[in-house]
Write a protein that binds this DNA or RNA. Structure first.
Lengths: 235, 235
DNA sequence: CCCGGCGTTTGATAAATATCAAGCCGTCCA
DNA sequence: TGGACGGCTTGATATTTATCAAACGCCGGG
């Protein structure tokens, strides 16, 4: 790894509390690599050689089964991925591909396990990260099992407008990636996402390419019935 | 806690490697309680006062949203639950209720966090438990998002027959709990589960109450197309 | 022993979602 | 600059799944 990349990694929540020598162990065998879009980084079923840390760009976690495919997570910097597989040394459950040009740190799994055993702060950070991933996954399952596709889209839009700093009555968001990915993450086909946008029109949702205008968020909220126990990524 | 209950707890994977004094800290404030069936133990949104350990019986983890409800996990002894909420001290994402008479150990969350910080073996066990929960949740999401309800049922039956020690060509299983719970876990209505059983008849599936006979598992397997990355609880 | 309740099944129907097909519209590349 | 490609939309249709209603049967309580 280039030495001027190191401070950047050091700043990540996962590594901030780490003792210097433990950190040194981790990065000794680590790479920081840049990938173009749509590169498959990981194939589900393979063994976890490296813990991955997305430093810049975007990554999709997805899974396939007999001609079907679904997106399970969209990652933004800074996130680790396949932490659970790394820690327990079991095969990946998801594949990963870049959605845009991305910089990714690759840390040998064995080193992660070594430092995990030796450094309590690191172990602590790992556990918190894992717990967050678990909770996110539960929320995802609840979203899919409890709501219709229109309801999922409505809630997605409300989450995005909050994240992108819109008002509480109207707002505007730019979809952060292709609609087909949003559709797949929300558990529907692209055609269905289009139609779902259409059926949100009476609730003040207007789409122009990647731009979405929300002109009546109260009414949208009445339809979406958001709850922190599904929709709040921080809760 | 009654002193003759202690050895039983001590045997659990989570506590086996634990130093004596650390274990003592955990046990000091703990209860072991017996609950009748259908008691609501935890309500989603509440704060995690206790880590729960199911010692005997059965527990359903479920979640509701506006008149809808879904089962996210069925627990058999010995399992912990709401570990993630306990560790990160955030509200429960799921409710829990007993499905049968159950004995459950309740360990104050604060004690769990204290021992977690002090004892490396315990931290290690916690992380493995968490990683397993996370992976199970991912598998659940994949199952729901990638397969139809008939496919989910077919795979469920194959999992059960393997767990209950059936052969590889034919076998018989007894459903471990009410069909409505299985339906809810598989993400369908009870009516639909009935019909799904019906459409598996040509694949050698015959139902008699809680007994299910599988007379042509090869054909069932061709339909189900099981994969360890969704169906193997141990992988 | 009979009764009532609840879980289950079955049927009829409706709603949600996917599939197939075609056309549109950008972008990228030759 | 023309064209090819991929993503998006729209329409028609098929499939999947849910809902509503009724009947059955098991099981526990009076």
């Amino acid at each position: 790894m280039r030495s001027d990349d190191v401070p950047e990694i050091r700043e990540l929540t996962l590594f901030r509390a780490l003792a210097d020598d433990a950190f040194e162990t981790l990065i000794r065998g680590a790479y920081l690599q840049t990938f173009p879009p749509t590169v498959e980084l990981i194939r589900e079923g393979d063994s976890p050689d490296f813990l991955h840390v997305l430093v810049e760009g975007g990554v999709e976690l997805f899974s396939g089964w007999h001609r079907r495919e679904t997106t399970l997570s969209m990652l933004a910097p800074v996130s680790t991925f396949i932490l659970a597989a790394t820690i327990t040394d079991r095969p990946y459950l998801m594949s990963a591909r870049t959605v845009s040009k991305s910089r990714i740190a690759l840390i040998p799994s064995e080193d992660v396990r070594t430092v995990f055993d030796a450094d309590r702060d690191f172990a602590n950070a790992i556990v918190n990260e894992l717990a967050d991933c678990f909770r996110a996954s539960i929320k995802h399952a609840k979203n899919v099992k409890l709501r219709s596709s229109v309801e999922r889209l409505a809630n997605y839009l409300l989450c995005e407008v909050a994240a992108q700093g819109g008002g509480s009555e109207e707002g505007q968001i730019t979809l952060p990636y292709e609609k087909r990915l949003i559709a797949s993450w929300l558990g529907m086909t692209p055609e269905n996402l289009s139609r779902a946008f259409g059926s949100l029109r009476p609730y003040g949702v207007r789409v122009e390419g990647a731009l979405v205008h929300l002109s009546d968020m109260s009414s949208l909220r009445r339809l979406a019935k958001p709850t922190p126990l599904i929709d709040d990524p921080a809760s």
